[in-house]
């Protein structure tokens, strides 16, 4: 028993050592990141070195962080919100300050908030990952995945933020009834449920399913792990939400105690260095001019992305979740 207590006391020591350092009198720059540590930690480290600003990051899901920010309110310690999708950014847009014009002008109009409260940092495209040995004809429009040939063979992640954003975009494109019909037809076609996009691509690659609706970069991530030889990305050419472009984005809280440092981080994320990192290391599309596109993917301009006002996604997100549940997909 004594050994157990000794171990516990050792543990307490370690834990207290893990406490806040308090070296920076101003306190660190606090970033709430819906983008995972595996993807952005190297970038944040680089920012810390280049700017000398100590940064503290909270990693979690974008939707969860949005809910947390809303719950924390004005007293939130967060300075910057770096999110995976525009819907989460839109949900908390009222808490954010308007970004300066120099920042907003770096990026195309369609990849930023219409009110200027968030700006896109990299582009992520919806795609159909498919097994190269499949006989099923590749869809020309998003309605083609409702084809009976896909019955029991299409992977979806109905609780995933990107899927919900995709459904929200569909509501903006074809209205509530049109979306409900599509979701019900999808449910009737026996889709296969997954927890996230990465498992869908892995299952496609192993042959468990013939394909699934994912974000384009998961296949490239899998290839970096030594898998993915049996899978390819298909970008639905129909110009509908099947090839929706969803930027990851960043915004600054209006309640921040460190607005200049926050702005520096935003500038850093939109500079050539970070944008190249997104292209080469996370396989996403850079959103500023003059940066090379990622390999193994068609250039962003060639993808027939739909014309959807991303700023409005947040307004219909709750409805999207409801429709998905009503269709019996979850």
């Amino acid at each position: 028993m004594r050994r157990v207590i000794a171990l516990a006391l050792l543990g307490t020591l370690v834990l207290t050592a893990c406490g806040p350092s308090g070296a920076d009198t101003e306190g660190p720059l606090v970033v709430y990141s819906g983008r995972s540590e595996e993807l952005v930690a190297p970038l944040i480290d680089r920012f810390e070195v280049e700017s000398g600003i100590e940064t503290e990051v909270r990693y979690a899901g974008s939707d969860e962080l949005a809910a947390t920010l809303l719950a924390e309110g004005e007293g939130s310690e967060a300075d910057v919100f770096f999110a995976q999708d525009p819907a989460s950014l839109g949900v908390v847009a009222e808490m954010m300050s308007v970004l300066p014009d120099e920042t907003l002008s770096l990026v195309d109009q369609q990849f930023q908030d219409s009110g200027g409260r968030w700006v896109g940092t990299s582009g992520r495209v919806r795609a159909l990952a498919y097994n190269t040995s499949t006989d099923i004809p590749l869809p020309e429009t998003i309605d083609d995945v409702l084809d009976p040939a896909w019955s029991g063979q299409l992977g979806i992640a109905p609780t995933n933020g990107s899927f919900l954003a995709f459904v929200a975009a569909m509501i903006l494109e074809r209205g509530e009834d049109g979306t409900r019909q599509w979701l019900e037809a999808l449910a009737a076609n026996d889709p296969v449920d997954f927890e996230g996009n990465a498992p869908i691509v892995e299952a496609t690659d192993s042959g468990e399913i013939e394909g699934g609706l994912v974000n384009h970069y998961y296949l490239l991530r899998l290839r970096a792990e030594g898998l993915g030889q049996n899978t390819e990305n298909h970008f639905i050419p129909g110009g509908d939400v099947g090839s929706l472009v969803m930027p990851a984005g960043v915004s600054i809280l209006s309640s921040t105690a460190r607005p200049e440092a926050a702005q520096q981080l935003v500038d850093f994320l939109l500079a050539v260095g970070a944008q190249s990192y997104f292209a080469t290391d996370t396989f996403e599309f850079p959103l500023i001019d003059g940066v090379a596109q990622p390999e193994d993917v068609p250039p962003l301009v060639e993808i027939n992305a739909p014309d959807v006002d991303l700023s409005e996604l947040a307004d219909v997100l709750d409805l999207a979740t409801q429709l998905v549940a009503e269709a019996g997909l979850v």
């Binding site: 995972s36 540590e37 595996e38 993807l39 990693y59 927890e195 996230g196 996009n197 990465a198 691509v201 892995e202 998961y218 991530r221 899998l222 792990e225 898998l227």
Partner: peptide, 9 residues
């Protein structure tokens, strides 16, 4: 986090 993002290793 690694599993969700496909960082299998």
């Amino acid at each position: 986090s690694s599993t969700a993002e496909g960082f299998l290793t």
